[in-house]
Design a protein around this nucleic acid. Sequence first.
DNA 1: GGACGTTGGCTATAGGCTATAGCTTGGAGG
DNA 2: CCTCCAAGCTATAGCCTATAGCCAACGTCC
Lengths: 222, 222
Amino acid sequence: MAVRADGRRRVDTRRAILDTAVEVMAERGVAGLSLSEVARRVGIKQPSLYKHFASLHAVYDEVFREGAQRQLEAVARAAMASEPGLPAMEAVVEAIGRLAMANPVVAQLLSWRPVPDFTPSEEAFRPSVEMVGIVRTMLRDAVAAGELDPAADSDSGAALFSIVVAGTLTQQLANEPGATYEGGRFSSLLPSAHAMFVRYFAPKIVSQAEGQPCTRPEHRKP
Amino acid sequence: MAVRADGRRRVDTRRAILDTAVEVMAERGVAGLSLSEVARRVGIKQPSLYKHFASLHAVYDEVFREGAQRQLEAVARAAMASEPGLPAMEAVVEAIGRLAMANPVVAQLLSWRPVPDFTPSEEAFRPSVEMVGIVRTMLRDAVAAGELDPAADSDSGAALFSIVVAGTLTQQLANEPGATYEGGRFSSLLPSAHAMFVRYFAPKIVSQAEGQPCTRPEHRKP
DNA sequence: GGACGTTGGCTATAGGCTATAGCTTGGAGG
DNA sequence: CCTCCAAGCTATAGCCTATAGCCAACGTCC
């Protein structure tokens, strides 16, 4: 394996390019990435960069893939760590929210299409597809546990779930990109947004075993 | 007023530039606008374009301003045409949805920040600010009519409303940009998304006058 | 131990973009 | 009739992506 004058190996340079790319995007906007600027910061000439990535889009694609992968892992971890059903859903929502606010650039790349002509490759997209599967499983679990109406475990249920979660985060990123998870005007509403979803799909038939027969179902304070 | 060789006047050229800009954005993505391409299509040389707009950002700004203005008008019209309260809210949500799907490019420019370094001028943003005012009024009306809990008429109520509406539309635009309002996987859920909001802020105290005292509030089928 | 292929740099360059400078021209208004 | 200026033009600087082609050093294999 070839070694650079300063002793850095290929993998390191590749890593440096990706990290610097995210850094540049953070400063100039996702669509404002410039390979020339990245090369300058990494300390190589711009054409040398093409030894590591075939094109600007290839850099975007790799940032997308790694971001999707990390998101998938965070979601899987959160889902594992909690009881199946609503607790898992809550944990997952929080995990996505925190990750998005910690990596706003990657979050934008994942949830919008901000770069002209760039659509992620199938390969880069795979983790996202897998994540949708996890979400569907969570919904099924919550339905099975009697915590949600069966209607929640459907395409439109999943779509509404993603509307609520992604909607909150994209509003946050568009309007107050620098905020923290707790401090953001929108991101701090993520639990409420999730509660909105849960209430909408509240099960219609209250179990006869629990609660008084003639009580209105609890209204959690909005 | 000077007249061009082909008889077009200044205003017409300006109009043509703006229309062509939207056209180019539709083809190449919002951030993919190129003044050179616009000039080519309008039939003038690229530097001549600077006689009408000071910069690329100025073109974006004007597209933003006009888009925000049209959105404001659509919202105001929809709100006027319906009973204050929930009917007006429903009408407004539908109006925003239809307008966004009919002008996806402008909708993206309004609700994301897709262009590096571009933030709309205060002037361009004014209609959007005014629109927030209308939304707040609608929420207040619905609370006054006893259709929503007082908690809905608050900053977080308004934020949740915009999460639900903008969230639905941005998911649609990001994932299926070409769809129609009715056909879109997400945009077709806009009424459900709105219902989600309404149910979340359902008034806690049911008027004693109406309904049986011991009935669970209706659960509209999700 | 030496020859050689591969890796990862480099320079030069083509062609696209925004933006500025400065020239030209024809119609409007005094 | 003459002047002025709006709105076109060419030329050019300086940024960008991407390609072509050169070269040094390292690892490998005979």
